[in-house]
Design a protein around this nucleic acid. Structure first.
Lengths: 219, 219, 219, 219
DNA sequence: TATGAATGAGCCTTCATTCAT
DNA sequence: AATGAATGAAGGCTCATTCAT
């Protein structure tokens, strides 16, 4: 259908499509928020459409089904994090500083995007069924893991870090040290009576987990 | 659970219903499994009753509402963990061994009870609203935190551990190092292509996180 | 669940079930009418429930889906006709009278149950997909066809009927002579300006089609 | 269709839109197929537009509403059949041959156009409401009925046919003998296990119904 | 205490139709 | 004339909850 359009109409079509793209994006954003707040089962399609300032019908025109929308949100969330990870420059820093930067980056990222954590946990509730069906996400390597691998090797080489550290274990630890604090911020603050997501709490946490990682890596 | 009931109610409740208590317990167990698998919104009351081999009406007779049942499950899950924590004996061990035992205990506990993690994350999705309404859980201090505090003090005193460690931060780190690995086992294994909950994977994780904690604590 | 009930409770359950059975039947009847009036696609589940004086939820509890209900209606419609066919006694009549009785029976049946025709045509719109899935209906031989076969043989034997008549062709003709008149009664009366379902019209049609069949069968 | 339009409108319409007329026709054809397959309620406007390779908006521009399109399809279907009927020449044939030709024509027509049957039955489901609103169709006399009337008179006059046959009854019988076999081809073949629309089956049916009609008409 | 049947609100999805370009 | 995007009103189906026995 599209092939026979003359160039000027092509541009027109693209212009029209710009509005559609905007609508699609608004729905995606709204879904992200709603899903993060209520989970897949708890989220309401009406609510997503309303938040998006769009019609429910449009949601289906663009995504076909609630579950497909979930998958799209999941993929987008992963892709967004990977994109920011890719922008973290550590190649020019000395190993310890580099490592600290990676650790801090991850903590700050999840502090800025706690919805990412909610999406992640929900997907684990589904036993990663949607993730498994997404070739796109599975194909995304983690820039953070790659950076960590490189920094670790550099530090080991100059004997600033201990030898024999498994980069994947360290990667998982780095995530765990950041994520748990924020993912469980509500239960933790209910029990300890102090907020976990104030700048002060985040800064304290940052100092601590950097100390843990660097302390551990000492030879 | 029943401790605060005045004696006569205790007796009355007991007298009324040996069978009723059993039914109640079966419903609670079934709810625990269903909630852990599907979350509060995704869980189905019919399914819980069916799993419990009970009638749906009984569920309402005993708990009044789905949400009340969730609260009960949440309280039970917390109480169960706290009870096992209380049974961990470390007072007689040298600080390093004691610390390793605490770390290992927590990892093994969540490995044995991954549903606990699911419940916890769901409750954070609810911004801990149910937990906040439970005086019972809020009142439960964490034996694990208390043990950790004591061990830390002992280690610091004999200069085996570094000084100035915040016990709460370390407690949160200890949980994070264990929980993340297991809570995200499905997405992690999808991405890395290896199972996270085999005995081999758990053992490797155990060795790593003990090394991290003890490595960090070195003076 | 049912096995361990003591006899008296069994009876109680059966009694309870009597109410359920009644509800189920009311839904089935209502569906029959609604489907016959509007077809499968045009029928409304809400309307069926309302006509049945029942709740929509009950419809799903008993039948599971609109399409399953359609199948049930279809099966019931066929079974009802076959049952009445079975009650037509012609063995004791002389061949010509017997044949006339069969022809008349069929016309009168569809005149009394025009919904049967509507259901039949709808099912042909579906290319008999539901019928094909019903072992129950496919297994039902047609008593009418069997009777016709026997009568035809008797008439041929005594040379009252012509030889070499294919019973299935005659059966189809007998149905066609009755069904068309009634199935298309609305378009026919619109075009001819006279009602097709008055007693007078039916009687005239009856006389005509008996004349056609017997006229044809003359040796 | 356009014959009654005054000349200037004729020219205007033609001038305005050679392409528009083609689009209109494609939509009409697509609607015919879709309606025949799914009925009025089951047909989808999107599907019709897609089949026509046209835009949904065009459908509304040309026909205004789904129901109006149905009416148009219905009128077209009737008109098409009447047109073919008009082309059947029997005036020069001897009565018996003429009658056979009329019977065969009708069978062959519906065999070639089974969609006509589907449309007809659907319209009866609507109690001929649309047909009733179409002065155009109601005004169309049936050439087939007229031919039959003439042939019958000729045959009676020369005593080749029995006397006193009601032409309308015979007309309805002729239709019924053809239509039922084909309209119910799916349920019939499901039950009898043999296809009804192969050339062999049609030929056998043709022979049978000619025999029935001519057999009946014998004096 | 326990059960099967019933309810009404609400959920995901789809449809015929219209607007803006 | 033609298109893609948008709309609102259902439509089929499911859920937590309650009634009657």
């Amino acid at each position: 259908m599209r092939e026979k359009l003359p160039p000027q109409r092509e541009r027109a079509a693209a212009a029209l499509s710009a509005r559609a793209t905007a609508t699609r994006q608004r729905i995606l954003d709204a879904a992200f928020v709603e899903f993060a707040e209520k989970g897949l089962a708890g989220a309401r399609v009406d609510e997503i459409a309303a938040r998006a300032g769009a019609n429910k019908r449009m949601l289906y025109a663009h995504f076909g089904a609630k579950e497909a929308l979930w998958l799209e949100v999941l993929e987008t969330a992963y892709a967004a994090k990977r994109a920011e990870e890719r922008a973290v420059e550590v190649a020019d820093l000395p190993p310890a500083e580099a490592m600290a930067k990676l650790v801090a980056f991850n903590l700050r990222y999840v502090a800025r995007h706690p919805e990412f954590l909610a999406i992640l946990h929900q997907e684990n509730l589904h036993r990663a069924a949607y993730l498994a069906s997404s070739a796109r996400v599975r194909a995304l390597y983690s820039p953070l893991l790659e950076s960590l691998r490189a920094v670790l090797a550099r530090g080991e080489a100059v004997a600033i870090f201990r030898a024999g550290v498994d980069p994947v274990q360290l990667y998982v630890s780095m995530l765990g040290l950041s994520h748990f604090h924020l993912a469980n911020r509500h239960t933790l603050s209910t029990i300890f009576g102090t907020a976990m997501d104030t700048e002060a709490a985040i800064a304290a946490r940052e100092a601590h987990i950097i100390a843990v990682v660097l302390g551990y890596l000492r030879p």
